[in-house]
Design a protein around this nucleic acid. Structure first.
Length: 743
DNA sequence: TCCTCATAACTTTTT
DNA sequence: GTTATGAGGA
């Protein structure tokens, strides 16, 4: 039982301590690039190698499946075993497996479908109908987020009803009630349910809880700052009497509060696990000094944080580059030409570079530039693979085969390809099924059975509809016969053929080749899955498919540039990072400027982006940008001003260098939360001598900053934020005694 | 019942 | 500049 020297070699004191601390609760606060993954994997390897703990007794919860895979690989490399690997995955996947096995104990049938947020939305619309609520007054999306928030803090509809503060929330609670009813009828769960029901299962069932605690005496949870209340509960329930739980996180990288993540979890940890050891990893190995100091001064503007002292012994490296382009096209062109320049100078591969942005829509300009200039790229996310119509259709068939009670997926495929079962027919069927209290599919079976035995169908339906239904049912029945016996790939082939979906996709009028390729890609996935030969083939395939994220399939490649959202970039690193769209309204996003805490989360998001960079960081903004139907001037992101001039190229001497974005004017905007981005304004400014961001002086109001210019009846309405607590005033340019101080 | 064309409403981030 | 919905004709 001697420690393999290499396990501790090259670790710093804090890392070593974290690896060695295997007893009792442990909180590792890990700054970006502080060797977190290294610590986690070495700690597991230490447990396995020096304490003889079998890897499968260790459960490691990660944020993405990709992270889990990497962790497993690295542990395997360290310990030299590949057989009994660590149990790893996301909370959702972990819960999915648990429910598949033991869900029956709390009334979850093992064939349940997992509904994604589109399915969820469809169901909420139905629920609103049942509750006779007007979707105009109660937007399903809003209701959806209320329900999701409730579920994430373990509230059922009754609890939400009790807690409802106003009529809107009361309505939401009512819809929630019907929504749950519908889920149950469809034998389906949503993402939140996976967590919620797993918690209920463990809470109400001591035996299962003991089973899990014994099975996994060692529990590790990564990205703890992004867990929600249900996940926190789950981690408490999974922690056995030995209290061997190790959580790793960084409050400064908490960027999922909109998904109900609660930073307080990381703070509660210390009170809920008295005697928890806290270790901070503060040495950064990833980035240059310049990048790290930019990151530090950026995040220092957040008020709600625990102070950390990050440091690095890396060289300062190149200063950051701040570039203001004219518009998004030029911004993209600058990125691409810079990438080409870096590649030509032989210091980097395209694969070393990543472009990060706040919203997926920003990828378009970049993609176009790549195509135009012949640069290979990999787009992470975008229109998500599993959200593509052909993929959803195929998966809907598979879901139906697995779970015939699933009326949402049934409704999705019943007329794809068109086979004469329209909305009217389905409406009639549904009403009848509801009256009989049988699942929709059963109702269809009955219609088909009646037809086949020459009886009149039990519902009033056109003869053509009856024929169509019976044809559909016979296809479905045949496929269901195969569902549990043939491998998933085979089932996919059969489904494509029998249902006519293959022809339908291949002959669709918009980009049939691409769609068919997607179908084949899914088939390919099934093939790979098949090779693993898992038990419960179809069920676990569907589960996996429902719970993968886009980054999961992200693989580094030498020759292509990566395009990725800031959120998805979390946990990744690149030698060269370009952050585009450093503008007010985009980063921070206009929908996240209502409150200080939202802005702070945006700042953390920015921090995450900055700290992904190893050697070179470019911050870009466009002076003009088009959103939707509007294009107009923008204002530099306040975050640019929070990065010290000293770390920026051409600005270190204090003067404005070629790349330096003017700072003084937007610096003033920073403090104002009421501010709205100019880009969101409804009209195009005419051509005044003023522009957004200019400092102006008014005879009576004093000095201020121009926030917005709007054309109005041949004049221009100027919105000015006055300093000195006067607030915002709207003035007509031709009348207002305004004088430009600086522009 | 299906398909086409028009319009409107909109896009934050995702397991 | 998109994508979801609706009306109307085949």
């Amino acid at each position: 039982m001697t420690s393999q020297p290499s396990l501790f070699q090259g670790l710093n004191d804090a890392q070593r301590e974290a690896v060695e601390t295997v007893d009792g609760p442990l909180l590792i606060v890990a700054g970006p690039g502080s060797g977190k993954t290294r610590v986690i994997t070495h700690r597991i390897a230490h447990l396995v190698h020096d304490y003889g703990i079998p890897p499968y007794r260790i459960a490691a919860v990660t944020f993405t499946n990709k992270a889990a895979r990497e962790m497993r690989d690295r542990v395997a490399r360290l310990v030299g075993t590949n057989a009994n690997s660590v149990t790893g995955g996301t909370f959702h996947a972990f819960c999915g497996r648990m429910l598949r096995q033991y869900g029956e104990m709390i009334g979850v049938n093992r064939n349940y479908s997992i509904y994604d947020s589109d399915d969820q939305l469809a169901l909420i619309k139905q629920a609103e109908q049942m509750a006779s609520k007007d979707p105009q007054r109660f937007p399903p999306r809003t209701i959806q987020s209320i329900i999701s928030r409730a579920k994430s803090v373990m509230m059922n509809s009754q609890a939400l009803e009790r807690a409802a503060a106003d009529y809107f929330e009361k309505t939401a609670a009512e819809v929630y009630y019907y929504y749950e009813e519908l889920l149950a009828r469809n034998n389906a769960v949503d993402f939140d349910d996976l967590l919620l029901k797993a918690v209920l299962l463990l809470e109400n069932n001591g035996e299962i809880r003991d089973l899990y605690q014994q099975q996994y005496p060692f529990l590790m949870i990564d990205e703890f700052q992004d867990t929600n209340v249900a996940q926190y509960q789950l981690s408490r329930l999974l922690t056995g009497p030995s209290q061997n739980v190790c959580v790793v996180g960084d409050p400064d990288q908490s960027i999922y509060s909109w998904r109900n993540a609660d930073i307080r979890n990381i703070l509660s940890f210390q009170s809920d696990y008295p005697g928890a050891k806290v270790i901070a990893l503060e040495q950064n190995y990833r980035s240059t000094g310049a990048i790290l100091s930019a990151a530090k001064s950026l995040i220092a503007s957040n008020r709600m944080r625990l102070d950390k002292d990050l440091f690095t012994s890396n060289a300062d490296g190149d200063p950051l580059v701040v570039h203001e382009a004219y518009d998004e096209e030029e911004e993209a062109a600058f990125v691409i030409s810079e990438v080409e320049h870096l590649v030509r100078s032989k210091s980097f591969n395209p694969g070393d570079c990543a472009v990060m942005y706040r919203v997926n829509a920003q990828s378009r300009a970049l993609e176009e530039a790549c195509l135009h200039l012949g640069v290979k790229y990999r787009l992470v996310g975008g229109v998500r693979f599993y959200h593509r119509r052909e993929i959803k259709d195929l998966l809907a068939y598979l879901h139906l085969l697995q779970n015939p009670r699933d009326a949402v997926n049934l409704g999705r495929v019943v007329n794809v390809p068109p086979r004469g079962i329209g909305a009217k027919t389905m409406q009639t069927l549904q009403e009848w099924a509801q009256g009989q209290e049988v699942p929709l599919y059963t109702a269809m079976q009955q219609v088909a059975a009646a037809k086949n035995s020459g009886q009149t169908p039990p519902v009033r339906l056109a003869a053509r509809a009856v024929n169509a239904i019976s044809a559909f049912v016979s296809v479905a029945e045949r496929l269901m016969g195969f569902a549990q016996t043939v491998p998933v790939v085979k089932l996919i082939d059969l489904t494509l053929q029998e249902s006519g979906l293959d022809r339908h996709v291949r002959e669709s009028d918009d980009s049939p080749e691409e769609r068919w390729e997607n179908v084949l890609a899914l088939r390919e996935l099934a093939q790979e899955f098949n090779a693993e030969d898992p038990p419960d083939g179809l069920a676990s395939f569907l589960e996996r498919v429902a719970l993968v994220s886009e980054v999961d399939s992200f693989e580094e490649s030498e020759d292509s540039l990566t395009l990725i959202t800031l959120h998805q970039a979390k946990g990744l690193e690149f030698p060269v990072v370009f952050m585009v769209g450093m503008e007010e309204g985009l980063l921070p996003h206009s929908r996240s400027m209502e409150s200080e805490s939202e802005v702070e989360e945006e700042r953390r998001l920015c921090y995450v982006g900055v700290t992904r960079a190893q050697r070179k960081l470019y911050l870009l903004r466009a002076f003009r940008r088009g959103f939707m139907s509007y294009r107009g001037p923008t204002v530099a992101s306040r975050f640019l001003n929070e990065i010290p001039a000293a770390s920026i190229a051409g600005a270190s001497d204090g003067s404005s260098g070629p790349y330096r974005v003017p700072t003084t004017r937007s610096a003033r905007v920073v403090t104002n939360d009421q501010w709205r981005p100019a880009a969101m304004a409804a009209a195009t400014p005419s051509r005044p001598s003023l522009s957004v961001g200019d400092s102006v002086r008014h005879n009576t109001f004093g000095e201020g900053v121009v926030l917005d210019l709007t054309a109005s009846n041949g004049d221009v309405e100027v919105t000015v934020e006055f300093t000195g607590g006067l607030g915002t005033k709207r003035l007509l340019l031709s009348f207002a005694p305004l004088e430009v101080i600086k522009g």
